[in-house]
Design a protein around this nucleic acid. Structure first.
Length: 427
RNA sequence: GGUGAGGUGGCUGAGCGGCCGAAAGCGGCGGUUUGCUAAACCGUUGUACGGGCUUAAACCUGUACCCAGGGUUCGAAUCCCUGCCUCACCGCCA
């Protein structure tokens, strides 16, 4: 969340930054927060004065009692003061709750580099690889997958519903192989520590990373009502929240984690979009990178993280492009976001396979994750970052559609051969 | 699911209803010593939110915080209630 003090001191700057997102409600929200903050500070002043009085007088009463003096008059007066304090504290609590709620619903301020606008204003940063030239008409992945017996969508629909794919045979092995290979690469080559997190989390965790309150209200989270738990939409949630309410030693930073998890998304608002095949699912696998950084290191770490994600596609030989997202396209908690899109010739589209985000101190403020600078100064909020590296289904889509051959078989990139035991998928 | 013990600062760990923001140790920071490192010694060291002063910091000052939320009381880390969590043992179970 945003720093209340900053909103108070630089309201125009805050509004201006939020406007980059094209979110009309935000400016009014800021005004309301400032209004409430004024009321809050007045109440604190009033209450603190009474509390100071109570502390002094209570001490005097203690003295007097010890000396056997009559204190009934003071006691009556203090009872009155305590009642007033109770009343003020009640009003203060209500106002602070409202401020808190508004802050939790206010998105992060975009970085100065983020372009204003929507999808059309996304900036193409770089492209890698040459889209392959086919001397036959490339087929979409759902045809290839069905023919090779890699995915059984009807079976998934039978046991859970649409959007819950069943991977079968070499399809299942491809999933497992990709997960293992990505984890191996990030731990061995990029120095990340492997984490295997819970797949269900509590509301505090969902709030810490910014999914709540909006995500739940919009019906995007699967929830286990009985236990007040939620299925994770991404490993970012449990992994980032591992350090919630901690004061980290500066010497521990940066902390870099890689985690595999399934991801669960109700996708409530996206009925009818991308419904074919593996393009949009309620459950999918993902390998996620998460970093905790010193304030001054986060921009460089963001670039490094993005490179780590791109490495996966390069080693798979899949053409991709990297975009800097505009304010309107960026995620709620993001300060700056790069999306990586892989080329899928069968569906003739770029597919988002990774989002690499720098959250600045936004999540750290929500989750209270701080570190003490090496100089021994005041605790500061860490910067958190994360990125998919990568989301599996669309990577599989790209592998199948790019690797397909005229005879219906699919070539597997050499890096995956040790994991799959073959270089070629055949019917 | 049952029973018992317990949740105190960055960490470990004391704590009588007022003299407790809280002993002690560790760690951190500063210094002395040292050719360097280590060790030793001295000093210092919680956080948040207000107010004052200030360009800002420093500083001064008030309040709150000893798991969370209620309650008793003039006054709560300390007493009572509820919840959550941790640990141990038992039961059940992959």
């Amino acid at each position: 969340m945003l720093d209340l003090k900053r909103i108070r001191l630089e309201p125009d700057l805050v509004r201006e930054r939020l406007a980059v997102r094209g979110d009309d409600g935000a400016a009014g929200q800021i005004s309301r927060i400032i209004e409430l903050d004024d009321a809050r500070r007045a109440l604190i002043g009033e209450g603190d004065a009474l509390k100071a009085q109570r502390n002094t007088v209570s001490q005097q009463i203690g003295e007097q009692k010890r000396q056997g003096e009559d204190t009934s008059e003071q006691l009556a007066g203090m009872r009155e003061v305590s009642d007033q304090i109770r009343g003020l504290d009640g009003r203060l609590r209500a106002i602070e709750a409202e401020i808190e709620d508004l802050l939790l619903r206010t998105p992060n301020l975009p970085d100065a580099a983020v372009p204003r606008g929507g999808e059309a204003e996304n900036q193409l940063l770089r492209e890698w690889g040459e889209p392959r030239h086919f001397d036959f008409h490339p087929r979409p992945h759902w045809e290839i997958a069905a023919e090779l017996g890699l995915v059984d969508l009807p079976a998934g629909a039978k046991v859970a519903g649409s959007g819950f794919p069943v991977f079968t045979g070499m399809g299942a092995r491809l999933e497992r192989g990709l997960i293992n290979w990505m984890l191996d690469l990030h731990t061995r080559e990029h120095g990340y520590t492997e984490i295997s997190p819970p797949f269900l989390v509590n509301a505090a965790a969902m709030t810490g990373t910014g999914q709540f309150p909006k995500f739940i209200e919009e019906g995007d989270a699967y929830q286990i009502e009985q236990d007040e738990l939620y299925l994770i939409p991404t490993a970012e949630v449990p992994v980032t929240n591992m350090h919630r309410e901690e004061l980290l030693d500066a010497g521990r930073l940066p902390i870099t984690y890689v985690a595999y998890s399934p991801c669960f998304r109700r996708e409530a608002g996206s009925a009818g979009k991308d419904t074919r095949g593996l393009l949009r699912l309620h459950q999918f696998d993902k390998v996620e990178l998460v970093r905790f950084e010193r304030t001054e290191d986060s921009d460089a770490a963001h670039e490094a993280l993005t490179t780590h994600a791109e490495t996966i596609l390069q080693q798979l030989g899949l053409p991709y492009r990297t975009l800097l997202l505009s304010g309107g396209e960026m995620g709620f908690s993001n300060r700056k976001q790069y999306d990586i899109e892989v080329w899928a010739p069968g569906v003739d589209r770029w597919l988002e396979v990774s989002s690499c985000s720098n959250f600045g101190d936004y999540q750290a403020r929500r989750a209270s994750i701080r570190y003490r600078p090496a100089s021994g100064g005041k605790p500061e909020f860490v910067h958190t970052l994360n990125g998919s590296a990568l989301a599996l289904p669309r990577t599989v889509v790209a592998l199948l559609e790019n690797g397909q051959q005229a005879d219906g078989s699919v070539r597997i990139p050499p890096v995956l051969e040790p994991y799959l035991g073959t270089a070629l998928l055949t019917p």
